[in-house]
Write a protein that binds this DNA or RNA. Structure first.
Length: 271
DNA sequence: AACGCGCCCTGTCCGC
DNA sequence: TGCGGACAGGGCGCGT
């Protein structure tokens, strides 16, 4: 569900609300959501810890507990919400962290593709180092993108979604970025020119930045940490617009399937 | 090593 | 109205 802009929006909300809060009690309603240890050990380890900061790495939410981390990946339908203890819950509640001041942090997930897990400082460094670079960082240069594509014949849309190279781009923003770059999503990665690599870099950064401004894309399930939907869906140019006119040339938007996922593009604008 | 595929799970929507 | 199939923002593990 959530790609970089959605996770970033959630993280900004949590970073405002949570630092300084202490975890008083932990309830694991859906044990399969906890990775790496049994739910009792997980709960015991978190109890009493203070939340120092909340940040993002790739599509993961990173909660610094001071000498250890709690990681959250939202999968397709995960939500991380700050709520009042007295507020109503849903059948999809997975994990509840009771905090001070009558508040709690709730993890909800209809499909349960999401995960919560703990990491030591050392595990964090190793895990984090194996991920690709952040697309909004200075490291993400046209040259970086061009050089890494040389060794891969994978179609460029699928290539963009591989989190070992560049993180944070998922199914919506891969289509949107390639539309902005005017590059056909079926092109093998190693067929790109340097100019096209630059256009793709620019397209990825532009669409991610704009989507963050609009607090992400809500197709159905996505909500920020306050339960509010994102507004970027109105700004999508090709995603979920099969048959509708291209916003640039008017030709109908095409839908194809790549690596089992829908891709949307304009066959006239994207070469 | 790189790559394609099936699978995890629940809900919604569409065509018949 | 009911039913089967396709599909949904992600990511892992398998076999080749």
């Amino acid at each position: 569900m959530p790609e970089l802009p959605e996770v970033e929006t959630i993280v900004r909300g949590l970073a405002d609300a949570l630092p300084g809060a202490r975890i008083r009690r932990v309830e694991v309603a859906r044990p399969d959501l906890v990775d790496g240890e049994d739910p009792e050990a997980f709960a015991k380890a978190l109890k009493g810890k203070e939340i120092h900061s909340v940040t993002r790495r790739a599509k993961n939410i990173v909660i610094d507990l001071g000498g250890g981390y709690l990681l959250v990946n939202l999968g397709m339908t995960g939500r991380l919400l700050v709520a009042a203890k007295k507020d109503e819950t849903t059948p999809y509640l997975g994990v509840r962290l009771e905090l001070d001041g009558g508040r709690e942090l709730r993890y909800h997930d209809v499909r349960r593709f999401g995960r919560l897990w703990r990491m030591t400082e050392e595990e964090w460094r190793e895990w984090e180092g194996a991920l690709g670079i952040e697309p909004l960082s200075r490291e993400f240069t046209p040259r970086y993108l061009f050089d890494l594509t040389r060794r891969s014949r994978v179609e460029v849309k699928t290539w963009l979604m591989d989190q070992r190279r560049v993180v944070g781009v998922g199914n919506i923003y891969a289509s949107e970025a390639l539309f902005r770059a005017k590059v056909d999503p079926r092109r093998p990665a190693n067929s790109l020119t340097e100019k096209e690599a630059k256009r793709i870099r620019d397209g990825v950064q532009a669409v991610l930045r704009e989507s963050i401004e609009f607090r992400g894309t809500t197709l159905l399930d996505y909500r920020d940490s306050s339960g509010e939907p994102g507004e970027f869906v109105k700004r999508l140019r090709v995603y979920d617009r099969e048959g509708e006119p291209c916003v640039v040339c008017g030709a109908p938007v095409t839908r194809i399937v790549q690596a089992g996922r829908s891709t949307f593009f304009c066959g006239k604008c994207q070469k």
